[in-house]
Amino acid sequence: MEQIPLEHILLLSAVLFSIGVLAVISKRHAVVVLMGIELIFNAANLNLVAFSRHDPTLLQGQMFSLFVILVAAAEAAVALAIVLRVYQYFKTANLNEVSTQE
């Protein structure tokens, strides 16, 4: 079975990271910003697993990737809870309209 070249995996990871950064910077809806952060995490995980393929006896990349996935799941749960609270208080999920000044 033929393996996918490392360059293709790194290119895919760079595209995912760029889309995630673009979503975080340009969008103002809180849920879209959270999705952008998740794309950035997934790009990092893809890099970790791709580089760990070079030494199949060590599973450091896969283990660190699993840790990142667990942290991302916890981050998503906490962030969605915060977004729900902000929506209840301000009646909007648009980050530009959220302000503590009355």
Rank of each mutant, 00 (worst) to 15 (best):
E7Y: 14
I40E: 00
A50K: 00
E7L: 10
K91H: 05
L22H: 03
K91P: 04
S18M: 14
A43H: 06
R53F: 14
A73F: 03
V86I: 15
S26H: 08
S18T: 13
F17P: 00
S13C: 13
F17G: 05
L59Q: 15
E102K: 10
T100R: 14
G36P: 11
A76F: 09
Q60Y: 07
I9M: 12
R53G: 15
M1W: 15
A44C: 02
L39Y: 01
P5C: 00
S52L: 02
L16Q: 03
V71P: 02
Q62K: 10
I9K: 04
L12N: 02
G36C: 01
Q88F: 07
A23E: 01
V83M: 05
V33A: 04
L12A: 12
F17M: 09
G61N: 00
F90P: 01
N45W: 03
N94A: 12
Q60R: 05
Y89L: 08
A93V: 08
N45I: 10
N96D: 09
Q101N: 14
L80T: 13
T57N: 11
I37Q: 12
I40L: 08
S52R: 01
F51V: 13
L16I: 12
A44Q: 00
V49D: 02
P5K: 02
N47Y: 12
A76S: 13
E7A: 14
V33E: 00
V49I: 14
V32D: 05
A73K: 09
E2S: 13
L11C: 08
S26V: 06
A44L: 05
R85A: 14
H54E: 14
L39M: 04
I82M: 15
H29C: 02
A79C: 08
S26N: 10
E7K: 12
L34G: 06
A50W: 02
Y87I: 02
F90I: 05
L22T: 11
A81M: 15
L12I: 14
L95H: 00
V68R: 00
N94D: 15
S99D: 11
F64Q: 13
A73T: 09
A74S: 11
M35A: 09
A81G: 14
E97M: 06
F64T: 15
K27F: 13
L84M: 12
T57A: 14
K91Y: 06
L11K: 10
E97R: 11
A79N: 01
V49A: 04
T57C: 08
V98E: 00
F64W: 13
M35E: 03
L58Y: 05
V83T: 07
E102A: 07
V78L: 15
I69M: 05
R85E: 14
L22I: 11
A73Q: 12
L48Q: 04
G61L: 00
G61P: 04
Y87F: 04
V15R: 13
L22Q: 08
I69S: 05
V68A: 01
L48K: 04
E7F: 14
A73P: 03
N94C: 09
